[in-house]
Amino acid sequence: MTENIIEVNHLTRKYGDFTAVNDISFEVKKGQIFAFLGPNGAGKSTTIKMLTTLLNPTQGNIQLNNVNPLNEPNLARKSFGIVFQDPSLDDELTAYENMDFHGALYHVPVDLRKKRIEELLKFLELWDRKNSLVKTFSGGMKRRLEIARGLLHHPKILFLDEPTIGLDPQTRNHIWSYIQNLNKKENITVFFTTHYMQEAELVADSVAIIDHGKIVAKGTSQELKEQTKTQNLEDAFLALTGKTIREEEVTGKDYMRMAHKLWRK
């Protein structure tokens, strides 16, 4: 029996009176590749923010590599790395500087840092542009750089929030084989979200599906397919979460927030 590296109990997050994450519990075993799936607005990113010390839960408990990130955020941060769904690069620095900055923050020794930066930038075909400012990059190049940066230090747990969003199929396969290799070789636990169900079916050892802030199913892809009597994970996902498109339940408040944003531009 392998130990749980992530344990989440009754985790809840409210924004005002809207509950984004509603009393969820799950665990991830050490060395697993874990897919956290759900429709838009289901609460995936909010959960990841709480797991990675960016957001305080309204209620509930988290254990990350036997550390409670609420009590010991600095210690918890030592055990994970993350690729965010939203941009998080410094546009005014070059690709290389972004990598190097990350390496310094995560205490990757200089020699190893140089070696890995070169390896990753070459792997993601950014090496030729290593000295260009990130603001001159295309969307796909920025995304690749975010991933390269996330893979620079080898943490115990890697959070990937829609890592392959906006990338072509070749690049996606390429990246996943790299991550799988890392997972095998260094026993790094991977916690990821994606909207590409084939991707999840292919790489995930275990899956949880969240909808409207609640976990609606857990298990291996196989188990979910059997449970829903479907042929692939995509159909299982649709069977579990329904076919309606999420319009993100626009509330009056959301409208105000949107109007606010437009006004500012």
Binding site: K78, P87, H102, L105, H107
Partner: peptide, 14 residues
Amino acid sequence: QFGFLKETLVAPVS
């Protein structure tokens, strides 16, 4: 707003 702050706030530095 540009998101870079997140990157620094999850790093293992106080």
